[in-house]
Nucleic acid binder design. Structure first.
Length: 873
RNA sequence: GGAGGCAUAGCUCAGCUGGUUAGAGCGCAGCGUUCACAUCGCUGAGGUCCUGGGUUCGAGUCCCAGUGCGUCCACCA
């Protein structure tokens, strides 16, 4: 059968799509239960509709897939917990689609920011994520439709809600919450974005009822005056001691309100007097609870003044502010206004200023759930990588507040709570149309939906079929690893941990591999509003998925942000090109009789050198992958391929390949053997190109995805040959250096004389000098004396390059003296160290011996330099 | 206000538990193209590892203080 050839040019478009399709058709992505193998499971985050961090998804998916492919090649049975959440684009797209079929328009979803966007982006968005994953080569099974809104996930969510309710860990209560008057929904604390905004500080005065003057206070929100039910001072504040307990008349409204004393008030801020509006400020609400104050709501859902205040009714909060300030001023209650910048909470999605408000919501009480979750991380049962994110986690968990889980959105899991309008009974049930157990009347379901993260928290087990005891759940849970960005630790990671522990009794995963965020080339967060987001699909189109993946892995170190730049992807693409061409070279020189990667019986020095280097690379790559140091691991592979394999081994193999016969065949075998290892080492990082080359080269596995990952092999350690070859390399570099310095073009060959104690070694490398540093002939001896030559010195050899008229004795001497100087510096430094008795006595023996060896080498070199100088004079 | 992070070559970043002559990619300078690759090769220049103390035989690495720049959380009448 004729051997498959590689195209002359590396072009990822020629094969990436084809290869993915092929993998998919062969079913390599379908997870399988294999009781003989250890499962390796990664939890994939549900994609987010905001979709702004597309490159963020690419990082997640790439890093996950690298680990998956690596583990799979080690014989682990792997699974990537897949699927789509109700918060996912795919599901929203479905909703949009069905709404359209019902003849609804975009206006009908106008109050829902998420759906509004989904409407605009149309339904492709769901497909887009899938497309992106495929393009990236992600080995993820997307065929599992059962975890969508209507089925498995819903069941799990309801189950959890019921359990928590029965345990008393879920309750409905009045609470000061953040309310977005635009989205008309409550939003959690973490969804509020604080922005510094210029505003004003209005100093007002409230008159005492008994006519004994005024109390001056300051506020940034005069419109909330309508809801004031008290004025507070600090109990320690001498200035106001005697006014506590007196009654004030609320300007404009005429309400009688008390002056109270509360610790919450800071004496030194403003006038030391605070108006208390329990309905419109979280702190005031707390104060109100302590003092039994009335809660008077003055605003509607969309932040307009309620009808109770006819003069201002229907105005929005900012209009009302103007009107009220104007009235206060006219009636003499405004003392002065000063400019004041303060941070204002805004809605993460629509950036409307949030309005704190008292509302009836569902809560999960967190204290009891947080305990075991903290313990799991503290005991090391679950670990963050890097470890420092523990602190983040603890800080949040230890100061946790109850979690408001109800959302007023149009889509999502509906809260399974029913109310009886007749008798006020509340029932939590999975039944669709329950009747009131007290009066037998039909009940009304809570219109609210659950916070996205409530269901996302169940991800690791709900996607495996929980609450049913499925075989998947038994085999794959707990999962091995979660890969995600640090921005999501509190939203998602911590909630998965306590949820897993609470509902399944087991931790959801052991390792949490945290990566940084991708920023633009200027270090800014990628965002839609800035327009600086980079579309991974476009990058893939331009440079190929392998290049993008490699760039994402290579540029990353755990937990640290990275900047995206085209140049980095280009560098990765060039690397792929290098590998491509190296493979083409091997294929072009390959005899038909080589049918699988296999080492020859006899290995030359350079073969042993490259194998030894390869073996060391295999070890460090595996070690680094084990430690989640994907960036370092990819760099290890890169360095080996480019610097060791291509720049040296392939170059020196050329003369053997040209020579033909057995030595050529042996060289081919080593080339194929090492290349086969390289491809497998690199496969997790660059899946497509490695598979394409794998298929062209002699191999012993139908796909590289299932070929064994290279493992460290004691038999491939050749320390001696490594050292030998390194002596030759150093000599070659020295000669090249001299030639460049003298501007000698490669076309001009020169006879090279090598004086060395290692004649046997250098004899073995004779041919290399001809090819790699333009030697016309090489003479090797233990002692050589040449007049009129440029001289290079390494620790193991003196190199003479007689080049007639190009040699200027004085310049040569100057050059050698410069070398002498730098060598002397080394010598001084090392001997200074070794002369220090403290160092010799206290430093570990290994370090001292290392220094001694260094000293010996430097001395050898110095000796040769001095000899050379002497010989020239 | 609390927590945590970063600061290393012109740029983007590596440098793990202290022992290197402090590295890479890009960029820059010089030379080079029939014979895998110009998406290339060879050679080179370029660094007070933010500042000041401390621990140590030894600090880019550990400790303390300071400066500068991001991040998360809380608060802001």
């Amino acid at each position: 059968m004729p051997r498959k050839e590689l195209a002359k040019m590396y072009n990822p478009k020629d094969f990436e799509d084809r290869i993915y399709q092929n993998w998919e058709e062969k079913g390599y992505f379908t997870p399988q239960i294999d009781e003989n193998k250890t499962p390796y499971t990664i939890v994939i985050p549900p994609p987010n509709i905001t979709g702004q961090l597309h490159m963020g998804h690419a990082v997640d998916n790439t890093l996950q897939d690298i680990l998956i492919r690596w583990k799979r090649m080690q014989g682990y049975c792997t699974l990537w917990v897949p699927g789509t959440d109700h918060a996912s684009i795919a599901t929203e797209a479905k909703i949009v689609e069905s709404m359209r079929q019902e003849g609804l328009t975009k206006d009908d979803v106008g109050r829902d920011g998420f759906l509004e966007r989904a409407w605009d982006w149309k339904k492709q968005y769901g497909g887009r994520i899938v497309k992106q994953l495929k393009k990236l080569g992600s080995s993820c099974d997307w065929t599992r439709e059962r975890f969508t809104l209507d089925e498995g996930c819903s069941k799990a969510v309801q189950e959890v809600f019921m359990r928590l309710y029965k345990k008393g860990l879920i309750y409905r209560g009045k609470r000061m919450i953040n309310w977005c008057p635009h989205c008309l929904t409550s939003i959690s604390d973490v969804e509020v974005v604080y922005e510094d905004q210029p505003g004003s500080f209005w100093h007002l005065r409230y008159p005492f009822k008994d006519g004994s003057g005024y109390l001056e206070l300051a506020t940034t929100r005069p419109e909330t005056l309508l809801g004031d039910t008290a004025v507070a001072v600090n109990p320690e504040d001498e200035r106001y001691k005697d006014v506590v307990g007196k009654t004030l008349i609320l300007p404009l409204v005429g309400r009688e309100i008390p002056v109270i004393a509360d610790e919450y008030v800071e004496k030194d801020f403003g006038t030391g007097v605070v108006k208390i509006t329990p309905a419109h400020d979280p702190n005031d609400y707390e104060v109100g609870l302590r003092h039994n104050l009335e809660v008077i709501n003055v605003m509607t859902d969309d932040a307009h003044i309620v009808d109770d205040y006819p003069k201002y009714a229907g105005m929005d909060r900012y209009e009302a502010r103007k009107a009220i300030v104007k009235d206060l001023e006219e009636q003499g209650f405004l003392v002065r206004v000063e400019p004041y910048t303060h941070s204002v909470g805004t809605c993460q999605r629509c950036h409307t200023t949030v309005e704190p408000r008292v509302s009836l919501q569902w809560f999960v009480s967190m204290k009891e759930l947080a305990g075991p979750a903290i313990e799991a991380v503290r005991s090391g049962d679950i670990r963050f990588i890097p470890e420092r994110f523990n602190k983040n986690y603890f800080h949040w968990m230890e100061n946790i507040r109850d979690w408001c889980i109800s959302r007023q959105l149009w889509w999502g899991h509906r809260i399974p709570a029913f109310y009886c309008d007749d008798c006020g009974e509340t029932v939590v049930t999975q039944e669709k149309n329950p009747v009131c157990p007290k009066c037998g009347k039909p009940m009304r379901q809570d219109p609210d939906t659950l916070d996205t993260w409530f269901s996302s928290a169940l991800w690791p087990f709900s996607t495996l079929g929980w609450p049913d005891e499925t075989s998947d759940l038994k085999y794959f849970y707990p999962t091995s690893t979660l890969v995600t960005g640090y921005d999501i630790i509190t939203f998602w990671v911590s909630r998965m941990i306590f949820s897993g522990l609470e509902y399944t009794g087991k931790k959801p995963f052991s390792d949490i591999f945290i990566h940084g965020l991708v920023r633009d080339s200027q270090g800014r967060k990628m965002s839609k509003s800035l327009g600086n987001g980079i579309d991974p699909l476009q990058v893939i189109d331009q440079y190929g998925a392998d290049a993008l993946r490699f760039m994402l892995a290579n540029g990353t170190s755990p937990g640290n942000d990275m900047r995206y730049s085209d140049d980095k992807v280009k560098a990765a693409r060039n690397f792929a090109n290098k590998l491509w061409n190296a493979s083409r070279f091997i294929l072009m020189n390959l005899s038909d009789e080589i049918v699988k990667p296999e080492l020859p019986e006899t290995l030359l020095m350079e073969d042993k050198w490259v194998l030894s280097k390869y073996n060391a690379t295999v070890k460090t790559v595996n070690d680094n992958l084990t430690n989640y140091e994907l960036g370092v691991a990819s760099q290890n592979v890169y360095d080996f391929i480019w610097d060791v394999f291509c720049d040296w081994y392939i170059e020196i193999s050329k003369s053997r390949l040209n020579a033909g016969g057995e030595t050529a065949l042996n060289a081919q075998k080593v080339l194929v053997y090492v290349m086969s290892g390289i491809l497998r080492l690199l496969h997790p990082f660059m899946p497509f190109i490695t598979e394409e080359i794998w298929q062209a080269l002699p191999n012993d596995c139908e796909t590289i995805m299932l070929a064994p990952y290279p493992a460290y092999d004691e038999n491939l350690n050749f320390a001696e040959e490594e050292q030998e070859f390194e002596r030759i390399m150093n000599a070659i570099k020295a000669v090249r250096n001299i030639r460049t310095e003298k501007n000698v073009p490669p076309s001009r060959k020169a006879h090279l004389y090598i004086e060395t104690a290692y004649t046997a070694t250098f004899e073995k490398g004779k041919a290399f000098f001809e090819r790699l540093c333009s030697a016309s002939d090489v003479t090797i001896a233990e002692s050589i004396s040449i007049e009129n030559a440029a001289i290079g010195v390494t620790e193991s050899a003196k190199l003479f390059l007689p080049m007639g008229e190009l040699i200027d004795k004085e310049k040569e001497l100057a050059r050698l003296r410069k070398e002498q100087e730098s060598c002397q510096k080394d010598l001084d430094m090392i001997s200074h160290k070794l002369d220090n008795p403290d160092f010799v006595n206290k430093a570990p023996e290994k370090v001292v011996n290392n220094e001694k060896a260094k000293l010996a080498r430097a001395q050898d070199r110095m000796k040769k330099i001095l000899e050379s100088i002497a010989s020239m004079q």
